[in-house]
Simulated scan of single mutants.
Amino acid sequence: MKETTHFVEVLELTPSAVAKIAELIDGRDRENLAVRVAIAGKLPAGGYQTEFKFVDRDELTEEDVVQDTGSFHMYYDEFAAASIQGARVDFDEAKYSSGFNIDYPEPQVIPPDVNQRRDFENPLALELLNLIETEINPAIAMHGGYVILENFEDDSAYVFMGGGCQGCGMSQVTLREGIERMIHEKLPDVKNVVDVTDHEEGENPYYAETAGVGESPLD
Score class of each variant (00 low, 15 high):
His199Thr: 07
Asp219Pro: 00
His6Glu: 15
Ile25Met: 15
Glu127Asp: 11
Val114Lys: 04
Glu180Arg: 01
Asp189Ala: 14
Cys165Leu: 10
Leu43Tyr: 12
Phe120Tyr: 14
Ala45Val: 12
Val35Lys: 01
Glu153Phe: 07
Asp155Arg: 13
Glu12Lys: 15
Ala141His: 08
Met1Ala: 09
Ser16Asp: 06
His199Glu: 02
Pro15His: 11
Gly214Thr: 01
Gly202Ala: 03
Val213Glu: 12
Leu33Ile: 15
Lys20Arg: 14
Ile148Phe: 00
Glu93Pro: 00
Asn115Gly: 01
Tyr206Pro: 07
Val193Glu: 06
Lys2Gln: 10
Ser83Ile: 10
Arg36Gln: 05
Ala157Asn: 10
Ser171Cys: 09
Phe152Gln: 02
Asn130Met: 02
Thr50Lys: 05
Phe152Arg: 03
Asp77Asn: 11
Gly86Gln: 05
Ile110Pro: 04
Val194Tyr: 12
Asp119Lys: 01
Ala208Leu: 08
Asn122Arg: 09
Arg57His: 11
Val89Arg: 02
Gly99Phe: 06
Thr174Phe: 07
Ala22His: 14
Gly144Tyr: 05
Arg57Cys: 01
Glu12Val: 14
Glu62Ser: 11
Pro138Glu: 04
Ala17Tyr: 13
Ile84Asn: 06
Glu12Gln: 15
Met170Thr: 08
Ser16Gly: 04
Ile25Gln: 15
Lys53Glu: 12
Thr210Ala: 10
Val10Asn: 00
Phe91Gly: 00
Met142Ala: 05
Leu13Cys: 13
Glu106Phe: 12
Gly202Ile: 04
Thr5Cys: 11
Asp103Met: 08
Arg176Gly: 12
Asp29Thr: 01
Cys168Ala: 06
Cys168Val: 08
Asp77Trp: 05
Arg36Thr: 00
Ala34Tyr: 00
Tyr96Trp: 15
Asn32Asp: 13
Phe54Val: 04
Val147Trp: 02
Asp68Met: 02
His184Phe: 07
Gly202Pro: 03
Gly163Trp: 01
Val89Tyr: 10
Lys20Asn: 11
Tyr48Arg: 03
Ala94Lys: 13
Lys95Leu: 07
Ile179Trp: 06
Val190Phe: 11
Asp58Val: 10
Glu93Met: 06
Thr61Leu: 13
Glu106Trp: 05
Ala17Lys: 09
Phe79Asp: 00
Gly46Val: 09
Ala157Glu: 11
Val18Trp: 01
Glu78Val: 13
Glu62Cys: 01
Gln85Arg: 12
Gly214Trp: 01
Val147Ser: 01
Asp154Trp: 03
Val10Phe: 03
Tyr75Ile: 01
Glu127Trp: 05
Glu51Val: 13
Ala82Glu: 01
Gly47His: 13
Arg88Glu: 08
Glu78Trp: 06
Val173Thr: 15
Gly167Arg: 08
Leu218Asn: 09
Lys53Ile: 02
Asp90Lys: 08
Asp103Pro: 00
Lys2Cys: 00
Glu209Thr: 03
Ala208Ile: 05
Phe100Trp: 11
Cys168Trp: 13
Gly163His: 03
Asp77Gly: 03
Asp119Phe: 04
Thr174Trp: 09
Leu187Trp: 11
Phe120Leu: 05
Tyr104Pro: 00
Leu124Pro: 00
Gly212Ser: 05
Thr210Tyr: 08
Val196Glu: 13
Phe52His: 11
